[in-house]
Amino acid sequence: MRRGLLWLGAVLVLAALEPNLRGLIGAYNYQILVLVGVNIILAVSLNLINGFTGQFSIGHAGFYAVGAYTSAALVFYAGPSVRVLTASLPTVAQDAVLLLMGLLGAALVAGLAGLAVGIPSLRLRGDYLAIVTLGFGEIIRVLILNIDAIGGARGFAGIPQLSNFFWVYLFVLITIATVHNLVSSSYGRAFVSIRDDEIAAEAMGVDTTRFKVMSFVISSMFAGIAGGLFGHFTMYLHPNSFTFVASFYVIIMIVIGGLGSIEGAVLGAVVFTVGLEVFRGFGAFRLINFSVLLVLIMIYRPQGLLGSWTLIKRRKQAGAM
């Protein structure tokens, strides 16, 4: 009951902000804010597999791309007929239906891709996941380059604009709540046990392969949703936005904030996205700033800015919320 009210309150606040925000902070800052939100979803979801489950995925951008293109294509091609079906609804509601349809498709296809990548590579020990996810990201990019129906090398233009501050931050909240609830349940304890000691986890009955795949698939689904939200905001997608460098950005975010901390991933996404904009004048050199920051963090705060510090104590929560 209390939870329902909290969610209602959050939706109302976001909905009230949405129409006035652009005027209040300017179009440029509005755009950065939306981008920050998309990156929060990416960082918090990658943190589930890399931070909490202790596996090393470096292909998050691949799932992000799968989601972005799936949602864009779905809405672009099926959108007109859906609009006819929902013609009796007001435009806002039609947009919402379309966006949610796109995001659902994005989450499903990205999740299936996660399953296809995860099952073979997570059964093996060691760094297979890193290698396979890296390869997967590149394969997806090359695949997109060669599919004409979604723009190929020209890029996918004319994607309906459906997402905005409201939707992005609604999904930021959903992502955070999902990951938070998950890691404070039996499932979360299983994820963390795998990170801490895989042999002991197995001995306690944790089917480590199954839980790694589960964590990886959920993580991929949210990357897909982030992609959908991104494409329907920028209205244009290009395969070059989804190179391994994009995956690396998300890793930097969670390392800055602290692996295994939700608040850390959020902070990392904010610092990184804003930092990237502030240093835009440096051109390609701005990445050097982050390399320096990363090295400094590794030396002085290897646990990240927040480490395993958490705002909300996870343990005492059984009854609350």
Binding site: R189, M204, S308
Partner: peptide, 23 residues
């Protein structure tokens, strides 16, 4: 000894209860 190092004493035991979970 192979305890879960980032978990508390209680969480170590709670993890092992996951086999009986119905959630």
């Amino acid at each position: 000894i192979r305890l879960f190092k980032s978990m508390t004493v209680l969480e170590n035991v709670k993890l092992a209860r996951h086999l009986t979970r119905t959630q």
